[in-house]
Structure formats: C-alpha cells, structure tokens
Amino acid sequence: MTTNIIRATVEQLDLVADLFNQYRVFYGQESDLKLAHHYINERLCNEESVVFLAVNADGEAVGFTQLYPTFSSVSAQRSWILNDLFVTESGRSGGVGRALMNAATQHAIETGANGLSLETANDNVIAQSLYESLGYKKETAYLSYFLSV
C-alpha cells in the first residue's frame, strides 16, 4: 500500500477529526464527531500537539498519530509522548502504523528530543509487537499512577 505521511494542519482538520473519532470509539467511547473536531482543532490551532496523517493513493485518510511535548527534568531535555496511534481497518497490515511511527521518530530527532514514550494496553499484542520491532523497550522500573479529578 502506497501511503503518504504528512504533518497535519487545520487544512486536514476534517480528516484527522474523523480518524480521532474512530480512535475514541475503538477505545469504547461514544461516537462524537463534533467533540473530536473541536478537540483536534484546539490542539492544532494552539500548537499543543503534532499530528501525522497517513493518506493512501486514493486520498483516503487511513491513520494518524498524535504527539504531545513534555520535558524531562532529569535529562533536562524535551521528549514526546506518543499518545495516539490509529490505523483504519483498510490500512492495517500495510505498513501504515510503522510509517506513522517512523515519522514520529524522525520528528523527535529533528526537535532534539531525548526520546518518545508511549503506553498501550496489556492485551494489545499487535501494537506491542510493532513497538518492539522498532526498538521500543518495555519499561518495568516504574509504576504508573493516575488521579482522576
């Protein structure tokens, strides 16, 4: 599958918002295209995230990844959180996820980051296999905590 990876801008808002909505539904959320559109628009307009979009030869959006900046106090450097990766059914098994991950890695290098971090579900073995094939290492030294407010 021939796929073009581009850094999304507000010009691609509708494409990204649709994929983002599908991503949220995949994770058990109710479909809400208006919410997805608003959320992605804010991230792009406020430069709060970087979104890479995969578009096939027919111009169809088949995947995206979204990165959020963060900083490491210990290394005194920027790093990126790869928070979202989604590939449509039609784009799966065609290298789209790998191409998006490679774009994220290149972006981290170009911005002088010390690395990329991500989390995935324990049972998402397909994603784990992709991440490990790209050199990601499973962290076991730290526990994750979350406080809902």
Rank of each mutant, 00 (worst) to 15 (best):
L13G: 04
D14C: 03
D14Y: 01
D14Q: 12
L15E: 13
L15T: 03
L15V: 03
L15R: 09
V16G: 02
V16K: 04
V16D: 07
V16T: 03
V16E: 07
A17V: 02
A17P: 05
D18S: 08
D18C: 02
D18F: 01
D18V: 03
D18T: 07
L19V: 07
L19E: 05
L19H: 04
F20M: 12
F20R: 03
F20V: 02
N21Q: 06
N21W: 02
N21I: 09
N21R: 02
Q22K: 10
Y23L: 03
Y23T: 01
R24E: 10
R24I: 00
R24W: 03
R24Q: 00
R24C: 00
R24D: 02
R24T: 03
V25N: 00
V25A: 00
V25Y: 07
V25M: 10
F26I: 09
F26L: 13
F26K: 10
Y27A: 05
Y27C: 06
Q29M: 08
Q29C: 04
Q29D: 06
Q29N: 14
E30D: 12
S31A: 14
S31D: 10
S31H: 00
S31Q: 11
S31E: 13
S31K: 04
D32A: 03
D32G: 04
D32S: 09
L33F: 08
L33N: 13
K34L: 08
K34H: 03
K34A: 10
K34M: 07
K34R: 13
K34N: 04
L35K: 03
L35I: 02
H37N: 09
H37L: 05
H38Q: 08
Y39L: 06
Y39H: 01
Y39S: 07
Y39K: 08
Y39M: 06
I40V: 14
I40L: 06
N41C: 06
N41T: 02
N41L: 08
N41V: 02
E42I: 14
R43A: 06
R43G: 00
R43P: 00
L44S: 10
L44V: 13
L44G: 08
L44I: 14
L44Q: 09
C45Q: 15
C45T: 15
C45I: 12
C45H: 13
N46A: 10
E47H: 15
E48P: 09
E48F: 09
E48Y: 11
S49C: 11
S49M: 09
S49D: 01
V50M: 12
V50F: 07
V51W: 09
V51S: 06
V51I: 12
F52M: 09
F52N: 09
L53F: 10
L53N: 11
L53S: 11
L53T: 06
L53W: 14
A54H: 00
A54D: 12
V55M: 13
V55F: 13
V55P: 12
V55I: 15
V55E: 15
V55L: 13
V55Q: 15
V55K: 12
